[in-house]
Structures are given as structure tokens and as C-alpha cells.
């Protein structure tokens, strides 16, 4: 059950604050100092930075080249296809590959660690919610 839904016996808990953030050592903070979390975070940041630079930066470079070096982009490759048009199609391929890498990496390297850390957070905060670590039981159909 989500804590987004207020139960009838509670006042509407709107302000998104951490109820325990006044005490010194909270579960969130101790998870934060966990070496596994640090490596998870660094890995995530590195991957996000590299992949964004590759797909978005690559596209901006392509725009720059098209504008300021049209001679290179106009080299014919086959028939009417020029280097510029081929690179444009290549953008779509790069995006597909990036998305695939992202999903595979998140599934194999990120999710298992994140699930473990979530389970730890739940252990350190007893009596709140019991569904943290269990993966969602619900299976989605294709539609």
C-alpha cells in the first residue's frame, strides 16, 4: 500500500517531509553512508552522464556540423544518400542502442543492489511498512 493515500483516521499528510529527519541518525542517512550505496550512486551517475553526453551531445554536435561544415555532410554515399542524412538516421540507431544498454544495465546491475538496500532500510525502520523489499507481486499483461 502506498503512503500517498491518506487513511481516514489520519489528517491529510500533505507536506512531504521526512518525519524522522530531526533525529540524528535516520535510516536514509545510514543507507547513504553504506559503501554499496556509494558505489551504486557513482555507477548510476557515471552511466547517466556518459549516455546523455553520447546521445544528446552527439546530436548537438551533429547539428553544429550540419550548420558550420556542410561540405563534410554533403558527401554522397550511395544514390541520394549523403553523409549528413546517414548520420541523421544513425542518431535513431544510437538512441535505440543507448536505451537498450540503459535498460539492461539497470536490470542487471542497479536493481538487485537497490532492492537489497531497500530491504535494509525497512529493517532499520520497524513497524512502518512491510512491503518494501518484496518485488511487486503484480504481473502486467502486454496491454
Amino acid at each position: 500500500m502506498s503512503n500517498y493515500f491518506t487513511r481516514p483516521d489520519e489528517p491529510p499528510a500533505y507536506s512531504p517531509r521526512y518525519p524522522e529527519s530531526t533525529s540524528g541518525s535516520t535510516p536514509g542517512r545510514s543507507i547513504h553512508d553504506h559503501p554499496e550505496f556509494q558505489s551504486l550512486r557513482n555507477g548510476y551517475r557515471r552511466f547517466a552522464a556518459v549516455s546523455t553526453a553520447l546521445s544528446v551531445g552527439g546530436f548537438l554536435l551533429y547539428v553544429l556540423l550540419s550548420n558550420f561544415a556542410p561540405g563534410i555532410m554533403n558527401q554522397p554515399l550511395a544514390g541520394r544518400l549523403t553523409l549528413g542524412l546517414a548520420l541523421g538516421l544513425g542518431q535513431f540507431a544510437v538512441m535505440g542502442v543507448t536505451a537498450w544498454c540503459y535498460v539492461r544495465r539497470m536490470r542487471t546491475q542497479f536493481d538487485p543492489v537497490a532492492r537489497g538496500l531497500r530491504a535494509q532500510a525497512e529493517q532499520r525502520r520497524p513497524g512502518t511498512q512491510s512491503t518494501y523489499g518484496t518485488p511487486s507481486a503484480r504481473e502486467y499483461r502486454a496491454w
Binding site: 503512503n3 536514509g28 547513504h32
Partner: peptide, 17 residues
């Protein structure tokens, strides 16, 4: 700041699910 806690939540989702 509450950034540590925020970061844990943003990455791991330890509070959101």
C-alpha cells in the same frame, strides 16, 4: 541539508513504493 536522505530516496526509492 536533507540531501543524503533525498538522494537515497531518489535512487533507491526507499520511501516511495
Amino acid at each position: 541539508s536533507s540531501y543524503e536522505e533525498f538522494e537515497v530516496r531518489a535512487l533507491v526509492g526507499a520511501d516511495a513504493e
